[in-house]
Simulated assay, not measured.
Amino acid sequence: MDSEPSSSPQFFVLKVPAPGNYDTEFSDGGDHNVGEAPRCPRCSAVLGMLSWLPPYRGELELHGESFGDLVRAPGNELLMNERMAEAFQREGLKGLSGFHPVEIVRVRKRGQRNKPPVPPKYLCVSPAFLSAAVDETRSRIRRSEPFSCTYCRAVGVDAMYGFALEEGSWNGDDIFRPRGSTGRFVVSQRFEQFVTQHGFTNMQLTPTQEFIQDYSAPNGSN
C-alpha cells in the first residue's frame, strides 16, 4: 500500500477490549431492547447491528486487575467511564453521541472468589457512522464481491492488509465507522493523543496502514 503523504492526518483502528491489566468485558445476558440497525442514506443497506435501547444495564467481567476505561457494549455501542467521557467532552473531541448512564447489576472477577471491586460509573456512547470513506485504490483489501453502492460500499471484507481513507472524505469526527469498513471503529490522531495523554485503558490502537485482518487465516488474522 502507498505510504500516507506527510500532510495527511493519521488514523488508527480501535480494538476493545485489549489483553492486559485492564481487560474488562460487559454482558447483558441477551436481555435487552433493540432498535433499528443503521442504514445507508442512499441505498438503505444495513450497516451494523441492531441498536441497543434503554434500559442500559448488565454485568461486568473483570479479566485484569482494574476496570478498563472503555468497554464493548451490545449493538454498535461502547461503554465509557465518567472520567473518560468528561475528558472527551471537555476537550472538544467529536464522534460520540448518547452518554446514557448504565446500571451495572453485577461484577465478576475471573479466577477470584473474593468480593470484586466496585466499578466506576459507565455511560453508553454511540460512535458515528460514515464519517469518512476507505480509499480502495490505496488499500489492500480483498472483498467477497464488488459493491453496488459507491457511497456506503457495504460489501463483506475477506482480508485486509492495511488501508487508507480517501483524502477529503473525513468530516472531522474523532471516532467513527468508515464507509467501506463499517464493522471497525476508526479513530483520529487527536483521539490517539488523547488516550496517550490521559493513560486511558482497555483499548488497542493500530495505525490503519498496519492493520491486518484475514478471515482465511486459522485464527482470523495474521
Rank of each mutant, 00 (worst) to 15 (best):
D158H: 04
L205R: 02
E166V: 12
C152A: 11
Q213L: 15
R179D: 06
F147G: 14
G162S: 09
Q193D: 15
D158F: 04
A164I: 11
Q189C: 06
A164G: 10
G156P: 10
Y151H: 12
R177L: 05
F176K: 02
D173P: 09
Q213E: 14
G168R: 07
T208F: 08
A154P: 00
S188T: 07
P207W: 02
E145A: 13
A164R: 02
T201D: 11
C149S: 11
E192K: 07
F176S: 01
R184K: 15
G156M: 15
V186Y: 00
A154G: 01
I175L: 08
W170N: 04
V187K: 00
V157R: 04
A154D: 08
M203C: 12
S181Y: 12
Q209F: 11
P207F: 07
R179G: 02
R190L: 07
G168Q: 10
Q213C: 13
V187Y: 00
Q213H: 11
D214I: 04
F185M: 08
G172H: 10
R153P: 01
E145V: 13
C149F: 05
G168S: 11
W170T: 07
V155R: 04
V195Q: 00
N202Q: 06
V187T: 05
C152V: 12
N171H: 12
R190F: 01
E210C: 14
M160H: 09
Q197S: 13
F176H: 03
F211N: 00
I212N: 08
V195H: 01
P178K: 00
C149T: 10
G162E: 04
P178N: 06
P207R: 13
V186S: 03
H198T: 05
P146R: 12
R177N: 03
Q213A: 15
A154I: 01
S144F: 10
E192D: 14
C152T: 10
F211R: 01
F147T: 14
E192Q: 13
Q209M: 05
Y161S: 03
S181W: 03
Y151V: 11
R179Y: 09
V186K: 00
G168C: 13
F194S: 06
R179H: 14
D174L: 09
C149H: 04
A164Q: 07
D158R: 03
G162Y: 03
M160S: 08
T208S: 09
G180V: 02
A164K: 02
F211A: 07
A159K: 07
P146W: 05
Y151I: 10
P178H: 04
M160Y: 11
E167N: 12
S169C: 02
F194W: 02
F176N: 02
D174A: 09
D174C: 11
A164E: 04
V195T: 09
R179P: 02
A164N: 03
T206L: 13
F211Q: 03
G199L: 05
R184I: 03
D158L: 03
T196Q: 15
Q193K: 13
D174Q: 06
V186I: 10
Y151P: 00
R177K: 13
T196A: 15
T201L: 04
